[in-house]
Amino acid sequence: MDNRPDVPALFLHFLMLAAISIGGTDTVLPDMHRYLVEVHGWITSKQFADAYAIARAVPGPNMLYVTLLGWQVAGLTGAIATTLALAIPPVTITLLVVRLSARNPGAPLGRAIKLGLAPITIGLMFATSWILMRAVNDDWRGYLVTFITLVVVLRTRLNPLWLIAAGALIGVAGAV
């Protein structure tokens, strides 16, 4: 395992992931974990989970955990590299589509692509949940908090911010 960070390789890998991240960045999270933690050992699984949690706790798009991942790997250059890599392909592709879509509205192939990719996207989201759950929860108490959160979100309209605050308090109280 080579622990020295390689920022150009990091940039290119995240660029590739961003280009295929249909359904949002969480679908490529497992591959980020594989690349950063398992293949290169640049950060630990704990650092990875912390970055994800911090991004949830501060204002802004949740997927800016990639900024923190880049920061942990290689400081400011790493942070800029992962953030730009995350933004460039989606912004470019979206602009192209927006500018072309006026000419070709409602193509049936587009609908088949959407229908065909939806189950794969959802399978990837479950994989993300699974990998995060195993990375962050040490024992049954963590799983219990995760389960209670799940039930509250599915059953009520409570702002998730309250759950995040409650999670921090439960953690500080030493209950997970």
């Binding site: 949830r56 759950m133 995760t146 389960f147």
Partner: peptide
């Protein structure tokens, strides 16, 4: 962070 993580996964 451990508490927030457990909640974030639930989300």
């Amino acid at each position: 962070l451990a508490g927030i993580s457990a909640v974030a996964v639930g989300l």
